[in-house]
Amino acid sequence: MCNDYRLMVELASVIEVFEHLRIKIRFPEGRPNIEAREDIRITDTAPIVRTVEGERGVGELVQRRWSWPGPSKKPVYNFRSEGREFSSNRALILCDGFFEFTDPIEKGKKRKDKWLFRKVGEPLFAIAGIWRATDKVGEAFTMLTMEPGPDIAPYHDRQIVILERDAWTDWLDPTVSAKSLIRPLPAGSLSVEQVG
């Protein structure tokens, strides 16, 4: 499952996308300094836009840790979406690409092959996530997962939930059914290239 993603988009461009979608962004902790990052890994801090309870069309942009400690102390960085509604603490995880790893194609190669997936025609997209407050690490987020769509299935048996832009406002509104928003993208929505 996805354990590495990237965000190379500047804050001004992020804000512009949300303005275009008529989603008002608040900065309750001040405007963060979002650096371009080729690799955001489990336990790293990264930007998310989270629900503002009771206000539709509004989100808070904050930086939080990716993953919280699970019952076995392993990090919870992916979370199955099937059968759940997520009626609170929803978040949009901002990225411009994510990575999946497969067994090497080349015989004798020891490291896994690394594949970069990007959304065709969109330099910024959002992964459906949830966040929670924990005693051990404070507030942290995780990515929701689902059965793979046609672009991911050749590489992995699960995938993260990628939301179409017209679903972002609804995802930030926990009164809208999560099940109505979680679905695979049509074939050809994601480009893929081998990067390692």
Score class of each variant (00 low, 15 high):
E16Y: 01
E16P: 08
F18I: 01
E19N: 12
H20K: 14
R22T: 14
I23V: 11
G30S: 09
I34K: 00
E35P: 02
T45W: 14
R50E: 04
R50T: 11
T51E: 10
V58R: 07
G59P: 07
E60T: 06
E60K: 05
R64Y: 09
W66G: 01
S67Q: 04
W68G: 04
S72E: 15
P75F: 02
G83L: 07
I93W: 02
G97H: 03
G97V: 08
F98H: 06
E100C: 03
F101D: 01
K109G: 08
K112V: 09
D113C: 01
K114N: 08
K119V: 14
K119Q: 13
V120Q: 08
G121K: 02
F125A: 06
G129D: 04
I130C: 08
I130D: 03
R132F: 01
R132S: 07
K136V: 12
K136M: 12
V137W: 02
E139V: 15
F141M: 12
V161T: 06
I162T: 00
R165F: 09
T175A: 14
S177M: 11
S177I: 04
L181D: 02
I182K: 02
R183G: 02
L185E: 01
A187Q: 15
G188N: 00
S189L: 03
S189Q: 07
S191V: 02
V192L: 03
E193H: 07
G196A: 11
